[in-house]
């Protein structure tokens, strides 16, 4: 059975919701909204690192496909961004973070630490990622928001048919 077939319905629902939150709420990583969405995900008993590990594995399913270049798959195939900057891996694991400063050994802010000013940390993370991936938007998104916009970095991306024809009075 493929790995992703093992997800339960609640887990699928929450991951999908986080993807939408990542897109819609994007830049506002200090938003309480994002934190709630992440909190709900954590309520399932899965840690962020578990989610990241899973999504990385799921991404690997398609990593070798001819059309899975980062440019084509910014959301689903973000593993390239993880490997592009090796310090990120440690940062996303949370293994080397400094809870006081939120900064990892490699200099990348770790916004998962408790007690941080999330807004300031996510702003710093955004700055760091923009410098690290200046020319690769997909990698930058993964760096800021995590693979598949799963918020595993601690930052929910800022907070984000034919339209109806009826006129507004």
């Amino acid at each position: 059975m493929p790995l992703h077939a093992a997800h339960d319905a609640r887990s699928i629902h929450l991951r999908a919701l986080r993807a939408a939150a990542a897109v819609a709420l994007g830049a506002a990583c200090s938003s309480t909204a994002g934190q709630n969405v992440v909190a709900v995900a954590n309520d399932t008993g899965q840690s962020d690192s578990t989610l990241t590990a899973h999504d990385a594995a799921a991404g690997a399913d398609t990593a070798g496909a001819p059309d899975s270049s980062p440019a084509d798959s910014p959301v689903a195939d973000s593993s390239a961004a993880d490997t592009a900057a090796s310090p990120d891996v440690a940062a996303q694991d949370g293994a080397s973070g400094d809870a006081q400063t939120g900064e990892t050994m490699g200099g990348k802010p770790d916004c998962k630490a408790l007690g941080l000013d999330m807004g300031a940390c996510c702003t710093a993370l955004t700055t760091w990622c923009e410098a690290a991936f200046a020319n690769d938007q997909e990698a930058r998104n993964t760096c800021i928001f995590g693979p598949n916009y799963d918020s595993s970095t601690g930052c929910t991306p800022w907070g984000p048919p034919a339209p109806p024809a009826m006129a507004v009075a």
Partner: peptide, 23 residues
């Protein structure tokens, strides 16, 4: 659509179809 398709990608089996849906 992002939410709905993301949910679907988590349930897709065949790698080629997953890749297509990821795009």
């Amino acid at each position: 659509a992002v939410a709905l398709i993301r949910a679907e990608t988590l349930q897709i089996g065949p790698p080629g179809l997953r890749s297509l849906l990821d795009q």
